[in-house]
Design a protein around this nucleic acid. Structure first.
Length: 493
RNA sequence: GGGCCGUUAGCUCAACUAGGCAGAGCAACUGACUCUUAAUCAGUAGGUUGAAGGUUCGAUUCCUUCACGGCCCA
């Protein structure tokens, strides 16, 4: 039901014409021997004689620009490693091939055999001896100078975005490097990479609404995981003392510039470590990853300069509320007073209205946006940390931290609760909250309790949002800029 | 879910305060051109203005509803 535009129609005619000339539009017999990067690096330090008697390269790529003259043309093409200019001369490739070349379009994929020379302006250029069409493109690409700007088209047809917007390509290359660096960092520290279920009978490990799916043969509903946590900790019970998983979790919530229904998280667990050990480890990891992906430990994010290489400030939730939020720490056990403060600042408090929820809500609004430099916030109420170990000093507080950078939560870690009866009580409290109307409260996971009863070594674990970390390291203001195919509503036509 | 903004040629954008034949650049097509690089020069063609309805002699423009997107808020 698609309207055939004139441009596409013209190309189709051209394709018919080429077919009639027995030209294979989609061959797969061009043997690429070199990349643009190979060529460029082999020329380093070569002065460039301007002659064409040297080594013959065999490359392929997509044509992005053509400057045609009568009997010669300059083209610009790109492969996965970079861009290169080529010079196509009728007297070099022959009349027949030049005739074919004249019928090619920007966007076509071509193969070239040729040698390198320097143009008068000093640019290394591939002089084609042979030129072959490798894949015909039927649709016109966006304009060369402005590229594709419309965000809707960029996200829906990311492949075009990647062809014409080189900054976009760089973001996803960097994303890959970030994940690779994390993996290397953890593997070097003897962590084991694992995969745990994405379809779970009881969704756990976070406060969130899950997606529901159905297993036909078993006749049962399953839930797409909201976090891998409870399975990774079962592996601690099983004796894998250091595990990590980098993969998708799913939350059935609104879409925004910081939320995609499916997102990528790193979670890792280390036996015999505490949440304080993990703060140290996190500093090391972020310095390592930032250096590996960005080439420096200092980054620029939305105009702010952020130092990822230093030791970061550690401050308790209550102190932060006092310092950044102007909330008297003495009032933090007084629910009525806190509700007054919240109301006076126009902050809406969640349904159950438990003290811990009010405090964290106040924090989210009053403090979080102000934490630009990396900051660990510690001392969370146990009430809002149902999977965390209690502090030995204060049983109302959890041995937990969250990491904030550029005003956003980036990581959440804690010493793990491994006392099965305490864990059971926490689940029961969550179930009560759920009864009271908090639909995101954790569900009872009896199987997990049973696992704890076999004995889980003391441990600490942490989750890091990979998308948000990537946003940070690529200076992106929207999560959609770092997810190749962000969620979009289908557009009917 | 709410508020504001947007949707015009393949792409990037115009068409204003005031409703009056919908334009430009790039891309495309024809021709010239063997060192261009946002090539240049001459010419040609390209539109159901997101969809549906309304007001009007006349709607890209004003109104209503819907779809999709962006930003902000929840």
């Amino acid at each position: 039901m698609e309207k055939t535009s004139d441009l596409i129609g013209k190309r189709r005619k051209k394709i018919e014409d080429l077919k009639n000339k027995k030209i294979d539009l989609f061959p797969n017999d061009f043997n690429v021997a070199h990349t643009v990067r190979d060529i460029v690096s082999s020329l380093e330090g070569v002065p460039g004689s301007g002659t064409d008697e040297d080594f013959e390269y065999v490359v392929a790529g997509r044509m992005l620009a053509i400057n045609r003259f009568g009997k010669a043309s300059f083209i610009r093409f790109r492969d996965r490693t970079g861009q290169l200019q080529a010079y196509i001369r009728k007297d070099k490739i022959g009349d027949k091939a030049y005739g074919l070349f004249k019928q090619l379009d920007i966007g076509d994929i071509i193969g070239i055999k040729g040698t390198m020379f320097k143009t008068k302006t000093g640019e290394w250029t591939l002089l084609a001896h042979e030129l072959k069409l490798v894949c015909k493109s039927t649709r016109p690409l966006p304009e060369k100078f402005h590229g594709l700007k419309d965000p809707e088209k960029r996200y829906r047809r990311r492949y075009i975005d990647l062809i014409v917007n080189s900054d976009v390509r760089k973001i996803f290359i960097k994303r890959s490097k970030i994940i690779q660096a994390i993996r290397t960092f953890l593997l070097e520290r003897d962590f084991l990479e694992v995969e745990t279920p994405m379809m779970q009978p009881v969704p756990g490990g976070a406060e969130a609404t899950p997606f529901i799916t159905h297993h036909n043969a078993l006749g049962m509903d399953l839930f797409l995981r909201i976090a891998p946590e409870l399975y990774l900790k079962r592996l601690l019970v099983g004796g894998f003392e250091r595990v990590f998983e980098i993969n998708r979790s799913f939350r059935n919530e609104g879409v925004s510039s910081r939320h995609n229904p499916e997102f990528t998280m790193l979670e890792f667990y280390q036996a015999y470590a505490t949440y304080e050990d993990l703060m140290d480890l996190t500093e090391e990891m972020f310095a390592y990853v930032t250096e590996a992906a960005a080439g420096s430990t200092t980054i620029s994010y939305q105009g702010a300069t952020i130092d990822m290489g230093a030791k970061w400030r550690r401050v308790s939730l209550f102190e932060a509320l006092e310092e950044y939020g102007g909330v008297d720490a003495n009032l933090l056990k007084d629910k009525e007073k806190l509700l007054e403060i919240a109301a006076s600042k126009g902050i809406k408090v969640t349904k159950t209205g438990r003290l811990g929820k009010i405090i964290t809500k106040l924090f989210d609004v009053l403090v979080e946006p102000k934490l630009i430099q990396p900051t660990f916030i510690t001392g969370y109420p146990v009430e809002v940390s149902p999977l965390s170990r209690r502090s030995d000093q204060d049983p109302d507080l959890a041995e937990r931290f969250e990491l904030f950078i550029a005003g956003h939560e980036i990581a959440n870690g804690f010493s793990e609760l491994n006392d099965p009866s305490d864990q059971k009580d926490r689940f029961l409290q969550q179930m009560a909250d759920r009864e009271a109307g908090d639909q995101e409260a954790h569900l009872m996971d009896k199987d997990y309790i049973e696992a704890l009863e076999y004995g889980m070594p003391p441990a600490a674990g942490q989750g890091i949002g990979i998308d948000r970390l990537t946003m940070l390291l690529t200076d992106s203001d929207s999560i959609r800029e770092v997810i190749l195919f962000p969620h979009m509503k289908p557009k009917g036509d």
